[in-house]
Nucleic acid binder design. Structure first.
Length: 1101
RNA sequence: GCCCAGAUGGCGGAAUUGGUAGACGCGUCAGACUCAAAAUCUGGUUUUCGCAAGAAAGUGCAGGUUCGAUUCCUGUUCUGGGCACCA
């Protein structure tokens, strides 16, 4: 009766499937337990031995919990939408649905091979309309929600509308502080609200929705034809494929995850994730606590812009200058201003008529200015907010002097985003409505947003965010991001050419370059100065690429004595450095300490910096020049992808205003398509499905789809009730299963999937669908299994291969060789010749086997040598030929061996190399285990005799250790314990049923097939999967004495068996009379005898 | 540069609260069985010295605390992971 694992495993897998032993019910008396694996993406490559590591550990834990009496939910499904399938479709013309289906089947077959206990009746796929109906439905909940900062909770949009109707947005400012209403304001009253038209109302609400549409800087990848999320971009290139990525402004769906930053951060405290995983999330959220401080700006030639239409001030000047034709001298500037005044008097009838109309447009919130200087030129009318210029032909444009400037000016205006409308006098006088309509149309077109940081008109200031307000007196300069709007407004005439040049340089710099050359110091002085709000000192304002427009306010205060980067900047550009920390600053290097006593700091003098932070912040708030502020590095999550193979947005645009689709019309299914190339205009392939996109003249659909994170953000809820078609899951099921108790997966999902899932669950919780707001109670990251690559060394330009030990004598190229034709390091040269046609005629330079040195040893036949390969630990990858397929391992050793071996390799969380050699040991263990029950020839050897104390002790020792180890996911040591236990029972020649039966149950989670087989062989009814875990009888583990190590001065010298209840005195007597101890004492009296009960004895001399 | 984790025999690793370092497995050496091989079984296997008994050193490196440190503290090197002009 041999251990025929192939037959046994096949048989039980079949029976288990037939009997549906893994079906899980939602109504059980037993306590629930939810064990989940991270959603796999079914790639075309199939599984390698690294993938099942997590699945095996979760399976062991699930089966263990089941034996322990829990109702265990352990489901599996597929994250089946996504880029690779679509890329494959583009390359091979196979529909993503088809290739995905094929990949899933391969995956499923491979998983089944390993004997997992998944409840396949609950399987789900994100690309199934029955599933993504609910992904879309949840998206609509996000669309219909806003985050109430006061309560720190999500609420329904209609609750926000009620607030607006009552009090405007006074208590709930726009989440995006830079957002302004068309009027330029960011506050509105209840009355304003009631006067807003539908478009404006929707636009305002959009500013609050959790899922919202906005122009955002996105990571655009031309090669993939899509937008990528921040976490899909690595060092400026795409995560998949490594294509360049650039910033681009596009109208995109985003999730307002930034509003939840604080809750996501706080939530980390109550969940059991590894410290490193929490750290990654904390870094990603990037909270920094500090103050926002306002610095007034003094331009070198002040131009106090007065309210109204242009300026009456004689010293006013153009706020923007053009180096090409105007800016270099002030004289010309003055000339233009004079000319504008002159021109004003000559205004024509047409101009006046249009002006009357335009100035009345104030109610529409676009303010027109008349004869307002732009770039040193005075257009007839300009709307600065919308960057729209209106010119009326006739008059001085005819003059030849003017004409030659037209070209340069138009160029400048275009570069700066201005558009120009030209009307003739006749048009205005004869058909004013048509003219106004044209203007309205132009105004409704959007311009690149983000109006500059401007205070009340006539005043310019810069807000900076700092975590160190205590260093306010050490500020020696300001640095503004090159993209900052204010740059245009503050640049002096003298500096204009230099600034232009620098801006051009910045634009030419790709993300990749900027990231590669971090240490390079660049920058340019604007000519303007900022005023320190406390000391009144004027400090220069610079621009530099090291300041990021997207972070904080896009401007910083430079404190060179305390910040390394600021210090380098100051040194590089020769800016004088103020020392506020005395001897802590050595003049050579900045010192970011918080432990210095402040000097040169006015009211902060004598304070410890650490304490001064709060003092300074208070003072700043009192003086009304700033406020305490918390900043987050995290950005809102881009949620649109220009892709076909994803969930369509359940949104309909009615005349460009987005509205939620009716719930009853869900799912919005993908239209059938044959080709998936992007449209080329930045729109996704769906734009080509015109019938689907355009519902009617006024209504159209979104042509983007959601990212793969969408389906994965809530799938764990669907497993609880996977076939429900009236709700995403029934409330009773949600309440019964609750949080995922253990979530096992790779660390690569740290910031994307895990944050989005946590966000979705928080919103669903706030809206009342869930009674928990963290999805995963405990997270375990399994380590990677790395590949162990093998190399052969080809002598350059030959087909000769030299063994690793001799390769240094030649000029060689190392080539990866398939690990499957190498035994250890020894290459199978014949297999190598057959491996690839190129190598058919390969010749080998062999060496003596360095391992077996004896002449009789393995490679010892006279004249023979072997080919030794080089090796390296690398990631497991097809291109390295180091991939090991689990199917082959299972075929050779069986699933039970494979499962136990993967666990035996090392701690679950550590990454470790795959080495097939060790699997023999685990396989031998299972054979040895089998032999306790059955003998090859004699058949069953199991006996019904009473067990001895020694046998019970061996058993319970093992059970105790295995249980402890399994509980703490230390599966490698649990396998060791089984081995030790089986070795001991073998030594005891124990074949007793009452002992072995218990051991068998405890082995079931690890090796279910052999356990079930033996369970039946020794005459049990029912499945061992439903047995209960054996209880440990401690009485057999109680010891009466212990073999103590006896040390002299800390060095163990001998061992003594002493009764456990021995007293200190008894021990001292016993130990000191020992011969070995006496010898080591050399007659000297012991100073002290340390006796730790159950541990050790130490004699100090 | 910053943050986190880690470093133990020839290899994967164990030592759960500071208490016999190297469990278990691989590899390897020797032996048994065999005509022989495979499989299986038994024993040795951290290093150095020694026939042995035994002795000395030893958990990346340098210190410290302690009767006693792989474990705690300080510094440092290297490896892996994360973040990266983040103010």
């Amino acid at each position: 009766m041999d251990y025929n694992f192939r037959e046994i495993e096949k048989k039980w897998q079949q029976q288990w499937r037939q009997n549906k032993v893994y079906a899980v019910r939602n109504d059980s008396e037993r306590p629930k337990y939810y064990v989940l694996d991270m959603f796999p993406y079914p790639s075309g490559a199939g599984l390698h031995v690294g993938h099942p590591l997590g699945y095996i550990s979760s399976d062991i834990y699930s089966r263990y919990k089941r034996l322990k009496g829990f109702n265990v939910l352990h489901p599996m499904g597929f994250d089946a939408f996504g880029l690779p399938a679509e890329q494959y479709a583009i390359d091979h013309g196979i529909h993503p649905a088809v290739s995905t289906e094929a990949n899933i089947n391969t995956f499923r077959r491979q998983l089944d091979n390993i004997g997992f206990s998944f409840d396949w009746d609950r399987e789900l796929r994100t690309c199934d309309p029955k599933y993504y109906k609910w992904t879309q439905w949840i998206f609509l909940q996000l669309f219909d929600s806003w985050f109430n900062r006061e309560t720190q909770q999500s609420g329904r949009i209609d609750s926000l509308v009620k607030i607006f109707e009552k009090e405007g947005n006074n208590a709930h400012a726009f989440p995006n502080t830079k957002y302004q209403l068309p009027s330029g304001q960011n506050k509105f009253s209840s009355q304003d609200w009631s006067l807003f038209d539908e478009r404006t109302k929707q636009e305002v609400l959009m500013q609050y929705r959790v899922a919202y549409l906005a122009y955002t800087d996105v990571n655009w990848c031309e090669a993939l034809g899509t937008v990528l999320a921040n976490d899909e971009v690595i060092n400026g290139v795409s995560y998949r494929g490594g294509f360049p990525v650039v910033k681009k402004k596009m109208r995109q769906w985003s999730l307002r995850i930034t509003e939840y930053a604080e809750r996501l951060l706080k939530g980390l405290e109550e969940i059991d994730f590894s410290e490193s995983m929490k750290e990654i999330q904390r870094n990603w959220i990037g909270r920094s606590f500090g103050a926002e401080i306002r610095f007034d700006v003094r331009t070198p030639h002040p131009w106090p812009l007065s309210k109204g239409e242009g300026s009456e001030n004689s010293d006013s000047r153009s706020k923007l200058t053009d180096p090409g034709y105007f800016a270099s001298t002030l004289e010309q500037g003055k000339g233009t201003i004079d000319f504008s005044k002159e021109n004003r008097k000559k205004s024509t009838e047409a101009e006046d008529k249009l002006w009357q109309e335009l100035r009345n447009r104030k109610s529409e919130d676009f303010k027109f200015r008349r004869q307002y200087p732009i770039a040193g030129y005075i257009p007839d009318f300009v709307c600065v907010e919308k960057k729209l210029i209106i010119e009326i032909d006739g008059g001085y444009h005819e003059e030849s002097e003017q004409k030659k400037f037209d070209h340069d000016r138009t160029k400048w205006l275009n570069e700066h985003g201005y558009r120009m409308l030209r009307f003739s006098n006749d048009e205005i006088l004869n058909d004013l409505p048509a003219v106004l309509q044209k203007i309205s149309k132009s105004l409704s077109q959007s311009v690149s947003p983000s109006p500059s940081e401007k205070g009340p008109v006539g005043e310019l200031f810069l807000n900076v965010f700092t975590t160190r307000p205590d260093t306010i007196f050490g500020v020696d300069f300001m640095v503004v991001a090159p993209e900052h709007e204010i740059v245009k407004e503050i640049t002096s005439a003298e500096q204009q050419p230099a600034i232009e040049e620098y801006l051009q340089y910045v634009q030419s710099r790709s993300e990749v370059e900027r990231m590669a050359e971090v240490k390079k110091i660049t920058g340019c002085f604007t000519g303007a100065h900022a005023v320190n709000p406390f000391s009144g000192r004027e400090i220069p304002i610079w621009i530099s690429e090291y300041v990021l427009a997207g972070y904080g306010t896009g401007a910083i205060m430079g404190v060179p004595c305390g910040d390394e980067r600021d210090h380098k900047f100051a040194k590089h550009f020769g800016i004088p450095i103020t020392n506020i920390i005395g001897e802590h600053y050595n003049g050579e290097e900045a010192n970011p300490t918080k432990d210095a006593i402040l000097q040169n700091s006015d009211f902060l003098n004598g304070l410890l910096m650490r304490d001064a932070i709060e003092v300074a912040t208070k003072k700043i708030e009192e003086a009304g020049i700033g406020k305490q502020q918390i900043n987050y590095k995290m950005r809102d999550a881009g949620w649109s992808r220009q892709r076909y193979w994803g969930e369509p947005f359940p949104i309909v645009y009615q005349d460009d205003i987005p509205y939620a689709m009716d719930e009853k019309d869900l799912p919005l299914e993908l239209p059938p398509m044959e080709a998936f190339k992007s449209s080329g205009t930045g729109e996704g392939p769906l734009a080509n499905a015109k019938d689907w996109v355009y519902i009617n003249e006024h209504e159209r659909r979104d042509t983007n789809t959601m990212p793969t994170h969408a389906g994965a953000a809530w799938y764990f809820l669907r497993f609880m009730d996977p076939h429900n078609d009236t709700a995403f899951a029934d409330k009773t099921a949600l309440d019964y299963w609750g949080q995922v108790d253990v979530y096992i997966g790779g660390a690569e999902h740290a910031v994307a999937h895990l944050l989005y899932a946590r966000l979705w669950i928080k919103v669903l919780h706030d809206l009342g669908y869930l009674n928990f707001d963290e999805p995963f109670k405990k997270l375990i990251n399994q380590g990677k299994i790395t590949g162990d690559s093998r190399f052969v060394y080809r002598i350059r330009k030959t087909n000769q291969f030299v063994s690793a030990g001799l390769k240094d004598q030649y000029e060689v190229d190392a080539l990866h060789v398939d690990v499957n034709i190498v035994d250890g390091l020894k290459l199978d040269t014949e297999a190598f010749r057959k491996w690839k046609p190129d190598f058919a005629d390969a010749e080998f330079i062999l060496e003596k086997d360095p391992v077996s040195t004896s002449p009789a040893g393995g490679g010892g036949r006279a004249g023979d040598g072997i080919y030794i390969c080089g090796s390296a630990i690398e990631k497991m990858s097809k291109s390295y030929f180091n991939v090991v397929n689990p199917d082959e391992v299972v075929e050779k050793y069986g699933a039970d061996t494979f499962r136990m071996y993967e666990m035996f390799l090392g701690p679950l969380e550590a990454s470790k190399p795959w080495d097939i050699k060790g699997i023999e040991g685990v396989h031998r263990f299972l054979r040895k285990f089998w032999r306790l029950f059955a003998h090859e020839e004699k058949g069953l050897v199991i006996k019904n005799e009473k067990a001895t104390d020694a046998e019970w002790k061996a058993l319970y020792k093992t059970l105790k250790k295995v249980e402890e180890d399994t509980e703490r996911f230390s599966f490698n040591t649990a396998v060791s314990s089984f081995m030790i236990g089986v070795n001991e029972l073998t030594d005891l020649k124990c074949h007793k049923k009452e002992v072995l039966e218990k051991l068998l149950v405890s082995l079931t989670p690890y090796a279910p097939h052999i356990s079930e087989e033996l369970w039946k062989l020794i005459g049990n009814q029912g499945s061992i999967l439903d047995a209960s875990y054996p209880l440990i009888e401690e009485k057999y583990l109680v010891e009466s004495s212990k073999n103590y190590p006896v040390a002299v001065n800390g060095k163990t010298r001998t061992e003594l068996t002493i009764a456990l209840e021995a007293t200190q005195q008894q021990v001292e007597e016993l130990v000191l009379s020992n011969d070995v101890v006496k010898r080591w004492l050399e007659g000297k009296p012991p100073k002290k005898v340390i006796y730790v009960k159950g541990r050790m004895v130490n004699i100090v001399v």
